[in-house]
Computed example of a mutant assay.
Amino acid sequence: MNVYRNLLILSATSVILACSSVSDHAKEIVYQCGIQDVTATFANETVTLAMRGQQQQLQQVVAASGAHFKSNDGRTSYWSKGSEATVTWHDENLPLCIEQGKLPNNVAFSGNEPFWLLTLNRDHVSYTTPEQELEFAASPTAYDDDNDWLIALRAAGEEVGQLRINTSICYDSMSGKASPYSVKLVLQGNEYRGCGGETTQLIQGQPWQLSAMTGSSGSMLDKPSLQFLTEGRLVGTDGCNRFFGHYSVDGEIPRLNVQGATKRMCSQASMTFAQKFIENLNNTSKIDIKEDKLVLKVNSGQQLTFAPKY
């Protein structure tokens, strides 16, 4: 699958508060839940979710707001509010699902030298630097041949700046942290460049299977894998045993911490490989995305390369 293929672009409707009833939706909506595509097809008072080659029909239930559907066994659910939805698939909580062609309702961009922070909340923009804080109205103006969305920043009805958003992976100029959007801000006669969105949009939603680990060789009972779940939970297999732990990508350096595993006995070669695999995970210093591959770079200079499972 193409991890970038469906990274979201800002459409004119992304800055307008959408209604949340089923009747306001198109018959079929495709969501991006991290790197996982989910298709929701509506008919009468049901919605059919499709992902990973499977389908499941859900029944509408009463909700205080939005459109809420559940499976008969309660293990799968869909709850949409505007252009966003929360989806649970067979007890697995997917990351925030966003309609393709739209940004999250709230998204932040930042840049360095000089430092600046800009938060886009539908049709409102907050801009902050160490010296000033400004507020603007935001309105989309055009979508050009470079796959950029142009957002006009307005104050007192006058255009005072412009935000250009591109759906290409961006790396922070100081930390190297990966983000899903590149941005150019023109304001007060100055031009600034930066990155935006959450790193989790690039890594959550599917299991990742190991395709290469530098400096190691050996046979494995199972192919090692890992999955970045919501709420910072990390799970996977080291090629012999299943493991669990936590992760954080909020700071400049990612933190992966494997805390426990099952105790199955495997061949000596498999267990040696598994031990090195876990050691590398715990010493990850950078997350990179290259040609649909997840690359974890380790303090020792080694790296682990993964491909999406589905």
Rank of each mutant, 00 (worst) to 15 (best):
S216E: 14
S217K: 02
T46N: 15
G218H: 02
A142G: 04
F109S: 09
D250N: 10
L210K: 01
E191S: 15
S173R: 04
E28Q: 06
K297Y: 11
N147S: 14
L234N: 04
T284D: 06
L187M: 03
F42P: 09
L304S: 02
N147P: 02
E231T: 06
G157A: 01
Q209N: 08
D172Q: 02
R5M: 09
V15Y: 12
L226T: 00
L281W: 09
Q32M: 14
S71P: 12
T48Y: 10
Q162S: 09
L8R: 00
Q209D: 09
W208F: 05
L120A: 10
G232K: 01
S71F: 09
G245A: 02
A274M: 03
D292N: 15
N190H: 04
Q132I: 12
V186E: 13
I253N: 00
L210T: 02
L10W: 11
T86V: 06
A156L: 11
T39H: 04
A307E: 12
K223E: 06
T167L: 00
Q268R: 14
S211T: 15
D24Y: 07
Q59H: 10
D145I: 14
C170D: 08
L221G: 00
R255H: 10
G74L: 03
T262G: 15
N112C: 01
Q57R: 13
T129G: 05
K177P: 11
G101Y: 03
Y171I: 03
S20T: 15
G111S: 00
S300I: 05
K286L: 05
R193E: 00
F136M: 07
K223I: 12
G205F: 08
M271G: 04
S267L: 05
G194S: 02
Y181A: 01
W116I: 05
A142T: 11
S248D: 13
Q132A: 06
F306L: 11
E131T: 15
A85H: 09
V47H: 15
S23T: 11
H246R: 11
L120E: 11
L7P: 10
F115Y: 14
F109Q: 14
N299P: 08
H124A: 00
E131A: 06
F115E: 15
N2E: 12
R264C: 01
T13D: 14
T199P: 07
T167F: 01
D37S: 13
Q303M: 04
I35N: 13
L49N: 02
Y247H: 05
A178T: 05
